[in-house]
Design a protein around this nucleic acid. Structure first.
Lengths: 201, 201
DNA sequence: CCCGATATTGTGGTCATCCGCAGTGTGGAA
DNA sequence: TTCCACACTGCGGATGACCACAATATCGGG
């Protein structure tokens, strides 16, 4: 798995180096990119950490880069840096999910604090997303019929009722039910319900 | 229950009247307040709708009013209006949960659109919060012993195991279990798990 | 002192669930 | 054609869940 990194995207080398050094003194691993294009080219879906994004850059701006990242379903928190931001820009990016929006000159410590909070948030998001992916993976292993039966089981129906609704025998329902429990890694309908509850299908 | 209203808080009567009229032409019920203090004095926990809050006002500012509302656990979305906002202010309020932050002069239609979205968001929040309150109310009706048994039932344990852990007979567990289902308004452990899943206790 | 809420337990029976054993049928891939 | 995944079914037994009927015991009020 990719290590958690603060990705610094800025076309000003002085800023990149200063931020990298600043973060490393606080034990935050960082990697810098000299343009939005370079970052997008190197970006991978399993990157973790956060993104510190300058808005004013040659060629592609930070805003365009942000939109491109949204397109790709990037999950890392994005912290904007800007020397001449305006209110609508800040509001728009935050409403689109940016983590923070800082104006230069900014307090070094404040920036690092924000980066650390962002990376913590990403770690939490990642953890919950991984368990969710595990569940999704198991669900995908179910045959169509098993999924049908599972839905009815989750509706709290008796095997007898399920058998009627699907026009099959009770024994068949039992077999599917058993397979569902096995594939989903649970031992009862209650556990199944809890596994699937925080995000129905 | 209180009707959903757009609460307009502004010390400029011209603005208040204009906004009220504007919203009513789009079938949005509005009520105006001539100061933050007046609104806070009249505010009730069961207000619904949204709040349109001017930042620059005599006496208490919109920002202070917002903080006071946060203290009171206000649930209505807050839309800030300002003629001279700066980026840090916008960022700070949005991160504290404000719904939007608009600079004057703003587009009338855009404002109404935002208000409508805010009121829809509040309606959704209210709906989910009400069902949650219902569940909480039912949980509160459970005796301590019933809650204990419920937890173990939700852990997917057999009555026999629950009986052992609580050092009581299986029959007693059955009685508690039955009472839990009755009081919670469900007919099986699966339904119970689904009712309580999107927010454990 | 009596009553209601709470917690407890037993008996016996019905219904639901789970599982092993055993088998049929179909459609697609090797 | 053979093999495999998938769906389907019956039988019978073990275990768990649910319930009606019937009781005992504690504690805090009224």
């Amino acid at each position: 798995m990719n290590q958690a990194l603060a990705h610094i995207v800025d076309d000003d080398e002085a800023i990149r180096d200063a931020l990298t050094w600043l973060l490393r003194t606080r034990n935050v691993a960082a990697r810098s990119w000299d343009s939005a294009e370079a970052f997008l080219a190197g970006w991978q879906a399993d990157f973790h950490g956060c993104i510190v994004l300058d808005i004013r850059m040659k060629e592609m701006s930070g805003l365009e880069c942000f939109d491109a990242l949204l397109e790709r379903n990037n999950s890392m928190p994005v912290i904007f840096l800007t020397g001449h931001g305006d209110v609508p820009m800040a509001v728009s990016t935050l409403k689109k999910g940016a983590f923070d929006f800082l104006e230069k000159p900014f307090d070094d410590n404040a920036l690092v604090d924000v980066v650390i909070r962002a990376m913590e948030a990403d770690a939490r998001r990642q953890a919950s997303q991984e368990t969710q992916a595990t569940v999704a993976g198991r669900l995908a292993q179910l045959t169509p019929r098993e999924q049908e039966v599972m839905q009815l089981v989750l509706a709290g129906k008796f095997n007898k009722v399920i058998a009627d609704e699907l026009n099959i025998s009770m024994r068949t329902v039992e077999v599917h039910r058993s397979r569902v429990f096995e594939k989903m890694g649970v031992r009862s309908a209650v556990e199944l319900a809890q596994l699937l509850a925080p995000g129905r299908d």
